[in-house]
């Protein structure tokens, strides 16, 4: 099984849903067969230049813009590489495999993600690892890594999984969080963790910390070593440096059951 490279011939005029482009079914087919597949009002070849590549089970999407939504939606296996920006819902409900976005991403990146690895070289919008209205829970597993900043309410109703951000988060990261970890190397924006029940926020600082987070003191916890090693193994060269031996622990949100935590490394 080889791979495919699909290059967008021109920037889309409106929103373009690319959720159907998945490595697993496409890379099993020949180039001319893929070219004839129906897409929108024509075929894939109407929008894309399609070439074979040597990398097995790998699909490269070249040239998408922030108008291209749903890339890697439900990705279960294989590698999907995006050379460009993506719009909303990238990696939503991912169940496995790897999605590498070499540009920036819009809102709802990795929303409801269950397994797999999602990386974004640039920045990402609001609700990273969150959920859409009407859904019960956000991210439930896997790893998201964003090279820049992320928007507001990352990890909204997140249950499990790990989000690593090189930059800082927007406001209210970890809102309504029920589990999992958000590690922001650049720190947290205003009001992190509103209505957070469980879960872990890690960063050097938190702006306008909510009054409902209680100082538990400075501690060296074994689990810090576990997450440092896990993230290093998952992300390799782009992994953040290991956490310090001691962090300051704030428990919250005490407005709910208060079993979440904000760990300040600075």
């Amino acid at each position: 099984m080889s791979g495919l490279r699909l290059r967008l011939k021109s920037a889309p005029a409106g929103r373009l849903d690319l959720s159907c482009l998945q490595p697993e079914p496409l890379t099993a087919r020949a180039v001319d067969e893929v070219a004839r597949l129906p897409f929108e009002d024509g075929t894939l070849s109407d929008l894309f230049e399609i070439t074979a590549i040597a990398d097995a089970n790998t699909l490269i999407l070249a040239g998408p813009t922030s108008a291209c939504d749903g890339i890697g939606d439900g990705l279960a296996s294989g590698t999907l590489v995006v050379e460009g920006d993506v719009g909303q819902y990238a990696g939503r409900f991912m169940k496995g495999g790897r999605l590498d976005i070499r540009g920036s991403a819009g809102d709802y990146l990795g929303a409801g993600m269950k397994r797999g690895l999602l990386t974004v070289a640039g920045s990402a919008g609001n609700f990273v690892g969150g959920l859409l209205p009407g859904e019960k829970f956000g991210m439930a597993g896997g790893v998201i890594r964003v090279g820049g900043d992320i928007g507001d309410r990352a990890g909204d109703r997140m249950r499990r999984g790990t989000i690593v951000v090189k930059g800082k988060t927007g406001a209210a990261a970890g809102s309504r969080m029920a589990g999992g970890t958000i590690w922001a190397e650049g720190g947290f924006g205003p009001g992190a963790g509103p209505l957070m029940r469980r879960g872990t926020l890690i960063g050097p600082k938190a702006e306008q910390m909510l009054a409902t987070f209680s100082d538990c003191g400075e501690h060296d916890m074994v689990f810090l070593r576990l997450i440092s090693r896990f993230v290093a193994a998952e992300l390799g060269s782009v992994a953040p440096p290991p956490l310090p031996a001691k962090v300051r622990r704030y428990a919250g949100d005490m407005a709910t059951i208060g079993k979440g935590e904000l760990l300040l490394t600075g």
Partner: peptide, 24 residues
């Protein structure tokens, strides 16, 4: 009830608060 579950990849760990910190 104060124990915390953390899942990293395929492994799940428990952090149990004890008098010298946490038992993992």
């Amino acid at each position: 009830g104060w124990q915390i579950s953390k899942r990293f990849g395929g492994r799940r760990f428990w952090r149990v608060p004890v008098m010298d910190g946490e038992f993992t």
